[in-house]
């Protein structure tokens, strides 16, 4: 059993800023942003203990939080690589060659979509749909930052320049 997760003062401050956006009896509204904050401070994923801690903090049932955690694709409930790569492979990007970009990344990192590298440096996200940068296709996000008009050479450069956290 993992040790209990404690929402410390720093995290508590961030979460209470989220809670403030909503009516005082609507703390549940803060669940999504709070999960994103907590996952950011826990190597990119949330654990059962994190859900429990948030449940106690917001007075929202654990199952209600778990439901949200599994519905939204940006919240991970399993460990993932430290740097998240999301490649768009929807139509506009596909028309500009995103299939090649995606297979190049898969070959280079020796993983498939949805997997993390052995050294846990990269996670190639299982969601490969439109990221609202269609006129910059092909495109990808690395740790949520956009890289557009990609070529195979650009992809190499970007991935090699990722400083491990």
């Amino acid at each position: 059993m993992n040790p209990e997760f404690i929402i410390n003062e720093e995290l508590g401050k961030l979460i209470s800023n989220v809670v403030k956006k909503f009516p005082s009896d609507k703390k549940r509204s803060a669940v999504i942003e709070s999960l994103l904050i907590l996952q950011h401070h826990n190597n990119g994923y949330v654990t059962k203990n994190i859900i429990k801690a948030l449940s106690d903090y917001l007075l929202v049932s654990e199952i209600d939080i778990y439901e949200v955690a599994t519905f939204y694709t940006m919240i991970n409930i399993d460990p993932v690589g430290r740097n998240v790569i999301s490649v768009c492979n929807n139509i506009s990007c596909m028309l500009r060659g995103s299939d090649e970009i995606l297979s190049h990344i898969e070959d280079k990192l020796k993983i498939k979509v949805g997997e993390s590298t052995k050294d846990n440096k990269f996670y190639l996200k299982d969601e490969i749909e439109c990221l609202a940068a269609c006129n910059g296709g092909p495109m990808m996000q690395v740790n949520h930052k956009n890289y557009e008009n990609l070529t195979l050479e650009k992809v190499d450069e970007i991935l090699e320049s990722v400083n491990d956290k």
Partner: peptide, 25 residues
């Protein structure tokens, strides 16, 4: 300002309201 967490369906207006209420979209 509120931030989502990845779900196209939340763009549908009533799904967005559910999401703001802290539920599945």
């Amino acid at each position: 300002a509120l931030i989502g967490a990845g779900a196209y369906i939340v763009g549908e207006e009533t799904a967005m309201l559910e999401s703001i209420e802290g539920k599945r979209g």
